[in-house]
Structures are given as structure tokens and as C-alpha cells.
């Protein structure tokens, strides 16, 4: 995989097949639909579900440090384990789980390039065996604030005119709809985007077989098409922070951006928050450009 900034974070299906019995490696599947793992998973893989396992059931947040430690221990993941993540939908949820592992400071995380789709296309076997790895000991770090942006920080970032990337569909970005095409509206009361954000829908980073695009194609997309700069602090967001965790992965590990944060509150928070600026239409707008911000219902469309 020539040219990626951190090529070691991507592994092939062949690598996973070779390492499935390696006690230093834990293969983890994360899917949109949990039935997929149930119907067949990579032999030896455990499942971590983004909703049931990673979300705090009470507060709107990720599970806390102690709960993350219990989760890892139960899945047979120790601090020095190589965690290889894969899943459905271009590894979208695998990247989300990857991001949470990095949030708690796990050292060695990889993505199986192409996920379930590539495993299937390569004709590799699926297993329905129950996987119960021996329990491990795990000590998590405090949350790493360098990869997570909360609302107040996003607001400061907007006011400073720093680079923002909206990875939702163009219809959501323009404010014509408040959810993904074909997905439910999960309750945002305003449509549009965060002023100053450019729009690159997340799935454009992936090929049809679920693998990531080449570094040349990714540079064309992010550096030339929307003119992001590698060294500028960047915040990516979507609707609930899932799609943008894939984009965070691409910018950080494949393109070598120096400072990327995922705003997991995303549009579900921003589109409901009181008195935060919103831009509508196809142009990024900005807080210094009143024609594009909230209060002007027509925006620039």
C-alpha cells in the first residue's frame, strides 16, 4: 500500500487469515446490523457493537474509562494486543470503533482494508462459531482530547476560521434534508452546515470493493478539490460522528494530517443547539459572511 502516511494501520484479508490464531492479535467486527456477525464472521473474530457496547446507556456519551476496560478484558484484549477491526459498509463502523479505541489510548489498532466485502470477494470462509477468548487485563488511559472535539471547541474553531469538513451527503450539507438519504431523521430541528465547512461525502474515500482509495486519489479529493491543508487543525463531523470517524481515519492515517478531531456531537447536536451559527446552501459561508449564517433563511442557495 504505497504512499499512505501510516501504511501499517491497514492490513489485508490475507494478513488477517494468517494471523487469526496469533494470541497477540484480536480480530474485532463492528457492523451496522449485528445479525451480520451472527450469520458469519471471520474465524476467531469477536464482536464489538457501536451502540450496545460503546455508548453510555444513560448519559449521551461514550462508555467511561472503567467500562472500556471491562469491555476489552471481556473480549480478550490486553494493552499490548494488536486489535484488527473490520465490518460492513466500507468499514464505517470499524473506523468508529477504531476511533473509540484511540480515544482510550490503545496503541496498536489496524483496519482490515475492504472489510466484510473484501473478505467475501476474496472467497475466504465465514464462521458461526461462538468466540470466547480468555479474559485479559486492561488499563485504559484517560480520554485523548486531541482526537475529539466538543461543541464549545467547535464554536471557537468556527470563529477562528479554521478548516472544517462536513462528510454528510450534499443534500444534508445544503440543508435540504436533515438525515442521510434512505435513513431516518434522528431529530435535528435545523438543516444546513457549520459555517466554513467544506463538503466531501465520506464514502468518496472508498472504492467499490470497500477498500480505501489510493493516496493519489485521496489527495485529489481532500487536498485539491476542497483544498484542505495537512498542517492546519481540522474538525470533521457528520450526523452523529460515525461517518466522520472514517474520514478522521483517512485524514490522519492515510494522508498524514497533523491534527484532526472528530466532532461526535455532529449535526444531531449542532442542528438542535440554541444560538450557534448555521450556513445553508452549497457554499461554505463563514461567521464573517452574514449572508450565509443562521438568521438568513435563504442562505446562499
Amino acid at each position: 500500500m504505497p504512499g499512505y502516511a501510516h501504511p501499517e494501520v491497514l492490513v489485508s484479508t490475507a494478513w488477517v487469515a494468517e494471523h487469526r490464531d496469533d494470541p497477540r492479535v484480536r480480530i474485532v467486527e463492528s457492523d451496522e446490523d449485528r445479525g451480520l456477525y451472527t450469520m458469519g464472521h471471520v474465524p476467531g473474530a469477536v464482536e464489538i457493537d457501536w451502540q450496545v457496547d460503546l455508548q453510555d446507556p444513560l448519559q449521551r456519551d461514550y462508555i467511561d474509562r472503567a467500562a472500556f476496560e471491562r469491555l476489552c478484558a471481556a473480549r480478550g484484549i490486553a494493552n499490548d494486543t494488536t486489535v484488527v477491526l473490520y465490518g460492513d459498509k466500507n468499514n464505517w463502523w470499524a473506523c468508529y470503533t477504531f476511533w473509540v479505541f484511540k480515544l482510550y489510548g490503545h496503541a496498536d489498532c489496524r483496519i482490515m482494508d475492504g472489510g466484510r466485502k473484501r473478505w467475501e470477494l476474496d472467497g475466504r470462509p465465514w464462521s458461526t462459531d461462538r468466540v470466547s477468548p480468555p479474559a485479559a487485563r486492561y488499563t485504559a488511559s484517560e480520554q485523548d482530547g486531541s482526537i475529539r472535539a466538543l461543541r464549545d471547541e467547535v464554536l471557537r474553531h468556527v470563529k477562528a476560521g479554521r478548516q472544517l469538513l462536513d462528510v454528510r451527503s450534499p443534500e444534508e450539507y445544503r440543508g435540504e434534508r436533515m438525515h442521510m438519504p434512505d435513513y431516518p431523521n434522528e431529530g435535528a430541528v435545523r438543516g444546513g452546515h457549520i459555517p466554513g465547512a467544506v463538503n466531501v461525502p465520506w464514502a468518496r474515500a472508498c472504492n467499490d470493493d470497500g477498500t480505501f482509495k489510493s493516496v493519489r486519489d485521496l489527495e485529489k479529493l481532500y487536498l485539491r478539490e476542497v483544498k484542505l491543508k495537512r498542517r492546519s487543525p481540522t474538525i470533521a463531523y457528520c450526523r452523529i460522528g460515525e461517518r466522520s470517524s472514517l474520514t478522521w481515519f483517512v485524514l490522519t492515517y492515510l494522508l498524514g494530517f497533523a491534527n484532526v478531531k472528530n466532532y461526535d456531537g455532529s449535526w444531531l447536536e449542532w442542528g438542535n443547539a440554541v444560538r450557534v451559527p448555521i450556513a445553508k446552501g452549497e457554499h461554505p459561508g463563514g461567521v464573517g459572511q452574514p449572508a450565509a449564517v443562521g438568521g438568513s433563511p435563504d442562505g446562499q442557495s
Partner: peptide
Amino acid sequence: PEAPTVKG
């Protein structure tokens, strides 16, 4: 088919 729990 990518949504087996919904289908179920």
C-alpha cells in the same frame, strides 16, 4: 440482506 435483524 445487509439488514438481517430488521428482516428477522
